[in-house]
Design a protein around this nucleic acid. Structure first.
Lengths: 134, 134
DNA sequence: AATATAAATAGTAATTGTTACTGATTTGAT
DNA sequence: ATCAAATCAGTAACAATTACTATTTATATT
């Protein structure tokens, strides 16, 4: 739709890689994925561009999972499931992101703060990890 | 109640410091707080004991916030509010931790996984940070 | 109480993910 | 084609955390 964004070739490739996977990759993963196709790519460039995307509102951080920051180009708010064993991150449909009306106001009063957003994360074991549990 | 736990003096002090604050401290904060009272305390000891508490089920991680892991000794599941500017973490009453019955089952089906827990986090600006916004 | 055994610690070094810097390259506008 | 601004590679710096080792402290046994 809006594919011409005046991105440099590398920036475009990084965005393309990020947005066409659902694994919520780390910078390292994006770098590994691209470096065969773009031999002259630097890991620093991946980090820098992921920051750029965050500032532009084209990507967000899922948080630091097992020591690495994980990213998502899907900007529609939705929960995630994180496997406590393999750290796989899966999307949960946005329909499950609902916090009951009235909660925002109540939490704002409880915390004396302005709430701008919320996030819901489910934790447990993915299928393949639970099959190999003790 | 269960104050005699056969903890070493330092382990006890670290647990006491962690459990008697509601700021959800980092290892560094616990260390700074204790080092006047326990001049021979090592930062590594704080890290190690926080890990021990996690393994023992006496503490849990709130996640890595602004580059530092933050801890909580309150084990009853409850949401948190995190200020996006000062990274203050506040407790939200556990009554707001409710995920509608049926959601766990649905998410398990959607993700092909076993859900063990969930976490809800609210983000925004705390009072003092919103007063100094541009 | 003395001694053996295990656990915990200080202090330091090593590791890891990430960020900052610098000089070279690429890009976009003229 | 030219030039200023943006982007980049490569490396160094950084910060949080973990690992390691020698020493100390606690616990158990006699």
């Amino acid at each position: 739709m809006h594919s011409k964004r005046n991105f440099s070739a590398k920036r475009e490739a990084i965005y393309e890689t990020l947005s066409s996977t659902n694994i919520h990759p780390s910078a390292e993963w994006v770098y590994e994925k691209l470096k065969t196709e773009l031999p002259g790519l630097s890991l620093g460039t991946v980090y820098r561009n992921l920051s750029v995307f965050k500032e532009m509102g084209l990507a967000k951080s899922i948080g630091v999972i097992n020591g690495q920051e994980r990213f998502d180009a899907v900007m529609t708010p939705h929960p995630h499931f994180i496997c406590r064993k393999c750290y796989r991150i899966m999307d949960v449909p946005k329909g499950y992101n609902i916090i009951e009306r009235s909660v925002y106001g109540n939490v704002e009063r409880e915390c004396d703060a302005t709430i701008e957003m919320h996030s819901i994360t489910f934790y447990g074991l993915c299928r393949s990890c639970s099959e190999e549990e003790p």
